[in-house]
Amino acid sequence: MMWSNFFLQEENRRRGAAARRRARGQPKAQMTPEREGKIKLALLLTSVGATLAVLAVGTEFWVELNTYRDNGSAVCDAAHLGLWKMCTKRLWQADVPAGRDTCGPAELPGEANCTYFKFFTTGENAHIFQRTTKKEVNQAAAVIAVLGLAVMALGCLCIIMVLSKGAEFLLRVGAVCFGLSGLLVLVSLEVFRHSVRALMQRVSPEPPVAPALTYEYSWSLGCGVGAGLILMLGGGCFLLLALPPGPWSPLCPKWGQRAP
């Protein structure tokens, strides 16, 4: 009799513990369709920024380097480069738009030679039109950009978990990730701008003489600027959705309510 009472009490204790675990595992409140729609809309906004960020990092039209057309030849040289790769092009003078003093734009058809930067593998600087890159600055820009993409991917994972599993506590984490990724993309752009200025100043003293150059930023860098701003805006939207509604209710009364 004593053993039967012992086993009965032990069974009741296990059932009670299992019930408490199930109660703790259940969400306190289900996500409303309106709130889920707002989260999906913010995720759509950040997906546009994510697409622009991947497009900017993966392409090599960040900056164009152009020589001057007045060289006494039927061809002129131009180049465009990004974080990973550089392309030099030999263009026909007849294809260059009239009224343009420099060679380009780089999208014109011509003889192209594209190579990846060696400072990611062998640690060698690249030489462009008798000018030398500053590999430390270029590497810093690339690392910051890749880190921004990694943080952005983590933010996407957090928001997907919010929508699929109802883990709303990850909403703030996703907001911080998207805001940080946008900031990192913008920082990468600024570091790249410094690398371009360093490239223009590091002229090789060895012959042949370095040609006069001009540079202009291209559409890949514009995509990066747009991506950084959109990601930060999306992070702000997620942060507003993650805030408790209590402090904002006096400032934003519901429709249909009238002041007494």
Rank of each mutant, 00 (worst) to 15 (best):
M2G: 07
A19K: 12
M31F: 02
P33E: 03
E34I: 06
E36W: 09
S47E: 10
G49P: 10
A50L: 13
T51I: 13
T59V: 13
W62V: 05
Y68D: 07
H80R: 12
L81T: 11
W84M: 08
T88I: 08
L91P: 04
A98F: 01
C103T: 00
G104W: 03
A106E: 10
E107K: 09
G110Q: 02
A112Q: 09
A112P: 02
Y116Q: 15
K118D: 15
F120H: 14
T121Q: 12
T122C: 11
E124F: 01
K134P: 05
V137K: 05
Q139S: 11
A140P: 06
A145N: 03
L157M: 09
C158M: 15
I159C: 08
G166K: 08
G166M: 08
V176N: 13
G179K: 12
S181V: 03
L186G: 13
L186P: 09
S188D: 15
L189C: 15
S195A: 06
L199F: 05
S204A: 15
S204T: 02
P205A: 06
A210R: 09
L221A: 15
G228A: 12
G228M: 08
L233W: 01
F238D: 07
L241F: 06
G246N: 09
P247T: 00
K254V: 02
R258S: 13
P260M: 11
